[in-house]
């Protein structure tokens, strides 16, 4: 084997290992939140990175905070603040909604706690 061959082999092994890491063991992979605005506009956002989302709804701007793979309504322009009191959402299927502002957030994951929920 030439040096080039050995280099190719080593790079190959590293590549395969990183594929395993990426596709099998990456944390938070496949965990998203689905944000529905006014029952039609839908957005998928990854829970992997911490951020604050500002969503414009019917009565104002709702602030959604993503932190450590969890999400919550941080601030809402509505009067009863039910969405804010729902607290952190983290497991697949967790759900919070602000009806006055018409914004709903649902955690989408590969393994959800419930198969389906009917309201």
């Amino acid at each position: 084997m030439k040096i080039g061959d050995k280099l190719v082999l080593i790079i190959g092994i590293v590549l395969v290992a990183s594929l395993y890491k990426q596709l099998w063991f990456s944390e938070g992979h496949g965990d998203f939140i689905q944000i529905t605005i006014d029952a039609k506009e839908q957005r998928l956002v990854s829970l992997a990175e911490d951020q604050i989302l500002k969503m414009k709804g019917k009565v104002g701007i709702s602030e959604l905070e993503i932190h450590n793979g969890k999400i919550r309504f941080k601030h809402s322009p509505c009067t009863n603040q039910i969405c804010v009191h729902t607290g952190w959402l983290e497991k697949g299927g967790d759900f919070a909604a602000c009806l006055p502002n018409r914004i709903a957030v649902e955690v989408v994951a590969n393994n959800t706690l419930f198969d389906s929920i009917n309201f």
């Binding site: 084997m1 030439k2 080039g4 061959d5 280099l7 190719v8 082999l9 190959g12």
Partner: peptide, 10 residues
């Protein structure tokens, strides 16, 4: 610079 083994893996 690369031999048969390297090309084969690639």
């Amino acid at each position: 610079h690369i031999g048969a083994v390297g090309y084969s893996i690639l």
